[in-house]
Design a protein around this nucleic acid. Sequence first.
DNA 1: TGGCATCTTCGACATATGTAGTAGAATACT
DNA 2: AGTATTCTACTACATATGTCGAAGATGCCA
Lengths: 126, 126
Amino acid sequence: MKLTQAEWQIMNALWEKHPATARDIMTRLPQGVKWAYTTVKTMLSRLVEKEAVSEHKQANTSIYEPLVSQRKARLSAFRLLLDQSFNGAMGPLMHFLLQEQKLNDKQKKELIEILGNESEKAGEIK
Amino acid sequence: MKLTQAEWQIMNALWEKHPATARDIMTRLPQGVKWAYTTVKTMLSRLVEKEAVSEHKQANTSIYEPLVSQRKARLSAFRLLLDQSFNGAMGPLMHFLLQEQKLNDKQKKELIEILGNESEKAGEIK
DNA sequence: TGGCATCTTCGACATATGTAGTAGAATACT
DNA sequence: AGTATTCTACTACATATGTCGAAGATGCCA
């Protein structure tokens, strides 16, 4: 389930609060994103077609709900980035993150802690 | 500098070895990606237009080189993913990674080590 | 009940992306 | 030199994406 950038905007708004109407969603778009009502509707229709969102009518008005969880969506976006930009492996990404100082000290310490607790369970480098 | 998926394929091959001719690049594409020679050329032209790649002739044959570093490209791809799918913050991503067990034991330990060293250098570790 | 406010459904359109085929110029092989 | 190979420069085209506008159906308030 690959979402386009515009679709992510819609989904983000929908995950934030749902069920929701097209208008609800429109008002929850990031400030800066100023789409016409019909643009939102178009995106929603496409998402319904893709079965990423469900739609049901409540007296002439459509009520939408996510069918794809944010987790699933994030997983596929993440995997895509990994494959396309980091040789499909976590190693290069980790390296990159540290090199680029994407983590501040607090985050690093936090991460170390979480990692420490988790490191007994084996993971998967998919 | 946003690259499309197809463009990433080309760039990956180019970063791997450059300068390179279109044919060099073609042979370095991942097995599975079977593009016609002209497709590779088209992608290269577009990348040259975007100034992501430079081109110069050596007796009727074009020699290409990356103008955008892999690091820069990764940075913008990463930032895009973060903004679009993780509320633009590292926190949610870190959480996601741990939750999804994207790291195996070895990687976690490795990460802890690197983090440890980095943190000390930053003079922040408890 | 007459309208205005809202929705919905369709269609439209420009640009972006993925993928190639053609034809003619340059180069290389025999 | 003649021919086969390889390049380049263009053009083409289908699908994907981003953004609406128009017109008609419905709902709500004075």
